[in-house]
Amino acid sequence: MSLLEVRNCTIRYQNGTPAVSNVSFSVEKGEIVSLVGESGSGKTTMIRAILGLLPPGGKVTEGEIVLDGRDLLKISEHEMQNIRGREIAMIFQDVGLSMDPVKLINKQYVEAIQVHEDISKEESYDKAVDMLRRMHLPDPKRVMASYPFELSGGMKQRVGIAMGMTTQPKILLADEPTSALDVTIQAQVVREMKELRDKYGATIILVTHNMGVASYLSDKIGVMCKSEMVEYGPRDEIIFSPKEQYTKDLIEAVPKMGGKRFAK
């Protein structure tokens, strides 16, 4: 049985047109799965539904989302709260916005750990520092004693990933984790996400519009277009021999070094 299975999922917002229609995919343990597509194709809506965090008005109208044999759509909000952060964690595009600007990283991080685990402040602190070190942040103790605004975008993103990974969730959902970063910093974060999987066996679902990032990290790729998943399969198949015209066009459109030039 797969770790996570999404079956024939349809999600609608108030106006009735589906944002995600009839999407199915499954994620095995230790896999990195990417959802790619243009803006408005429904990829973010899809992964927010997994966490039960759809924006107001959004609702899964058909289908099921099964984690380890439990249908996440049928359980109570109270049970869902136990799953959030502990079994499924999420990192957002701009981690800085989801941090408290007037609290030290130390305080927010320790608080986040203590919500999920019954351990002392000191133990939580050590755990946090250890996690930051694993994300290759130089001088983790200084990072812990900083406010979010004192950290650069790349550092905040790594703190966010570290916070998401501390409770060792079964699945890490990452919504455009590298899109707001410079290419050089993006490469560093991508490298660390790969290490999370290779060293610690993390399962990651990645939403991105960057085909390069998806291609480098993923085991499987799902291509979404206008609310539907037009193609889903192993990475090599999608990248090197796509069947759908849309996937071909999407890959073709990505600017490549040594690729097509518009200027003469």
């Binding site: 290419v183 050089t184 993006q186 490469a187 991508v190 960057n210 085909m211 390069g212 990032v213 291609s215 480098y216 990290l217 990475r235 990248i239 090197f240 890959i251 990505v254 490549k256 070094m257």
Partner: peptide
């Protein structure tokens, strides 16, 4: 730093 679509994983 550029991740090519056809990169080697």
């Amino acid at each position: 730093s550029i991740l090519d679509v056809y990169c080697d994983q």
